[in-house]
Nucleic acid binder design. Sequence first.
RNA 1: GGAGGGGUGGCCGAGCGGUCAAUGGCAGCAGACUGUAAAUCUGCCGACGUAUGUCUACGUUGGUUCAAAUCCAACCCCCUCCA
Length: 417
Amino acid sequence: MTEPKSLLLKTLVERGHFHQCTDFEALDKAAGEGIVTGYIGFDCTADSLHVGSLVQIMTLRRLQQSGHKPIVLMGGGTTRIGDPSGKDEARSLLTDEKIASNMAGIRKVFDHYLTFGDGPTDAIMVNNNDWLDGLQYISFLRDYGRHFSVNRMLSFDSVKLRLDREQPLSFLEFNYMILQGYDFLELRRRLGCTLQMGGSDQWGNIVNGVELGRRAAGLELYGFTSPLLTTASGAKMGKTASGAVWLNADKLAPFEFWQYWRNTEDGDVGRFLRLFTDLPEGEIARLEALEGAGINEAKKVLATEVTALAHGRAIADEMAETARRVFEEGATGEALARIEIARPDLAAGVGLIDLFVRAGLATSNGEARRLIKGNGARINDMAVTDERQQAGEADVNSDGVIKLTAGKKRHALIVPV
RNA sequence: GGAGGGGUGGCCGAGCGGUCAAUGGCAGCAGACUGUAAAUCUGCCGACGUAUGUCUACGUUGGUUCAAAUCCAACCCCCUCCA
């Protein structure tokens, strides 16, 4: 690999997005000469995207920032099949209605990261169901199926993994890579798209598309992958107590989102700042160099910057301020989860176990009980020692709420109404 | 179609008539230590219940037995080999 000359590849390499490329020099040249249209496909398996997809989203953002045109490909059609990559077994099939509603949820995420419109470098969103749904089986097989060798397909990791583990792989799923390859060709024809990007687990699928373009239509297409993201200690990213770290505010409260980034491991701070924020390199280098407890400042910047992209600057600042009040002053903060409770109920006394469950700090009575037994539960910052303890009106503090805490970091406010 | 193997908690994976809510690992939660970090150590980790307890769970449905994740039958699904 030579030093990239184009702004696009320079940016992607510098920001840590680069893992592999089918033809680095050629893509570099193309990006230096004109607008490159590139796409990344997204599954519609959930009604939001989570941080696992954030590298991909940011890759599209970098593409646009570098003066090129991003396409968000919604896998409306391919989701009806299910990508076998990285899956031990077949996912259950989703209904078409579910896919449609998932797609609507995902669309909202992208508005925060890309500028959509009709201009030359404006982002557009397309759905591969538009062309996959109407495919004629026989003619499709004759035109494109002949370019795929089963011998080769069997050697792909996504397939091999299943076979090696003696896990079933249905013919339906086996076709996924063919259709994804076909998507690329179709996007080239419809929109002049010459670049497909994705996570490194998509390498095989992407290469298929590039090769199909060459074999079936003599086209020169490029593939580019980003590293799969794990934390410095090797864990997969994106999990919290309450589940995946979603990018939609209605799936994960912005405060939790901010907290997720605030709790980044030390060794990841620099890498994440490059990947997930727009901060200039100099600023990142400065933050990254902080040592010991000082690195916490960098984590706050990281959390606020990432939240600003996902939820807007105003909300991000509010979350930073809430966190400061809650953690550094021990106060209650506006943005904590608020759960309402009827005043008469409260007057009669409510069991704390019940309250923790209602507040979402425990998923079952048993879990709340365990939390209390393990000294992890607090009410208004006082440890709860008796699981039969009740909360009453006397527990409402000067802010007019009852503050519940689970562990050190999870808080909720009970508001009498 | 034939022969053999298999389906266990979020995942991996033991158990192969009672002592099984089910060993162990991963993931998760809490406590200690810290910096709202990592690593480490400790405890917890199906639901309900203050609790001796009750209920639900080992592919599905029946059966044998005082007693079944464990035995039997049928069915469903998967894998391997043969045709």
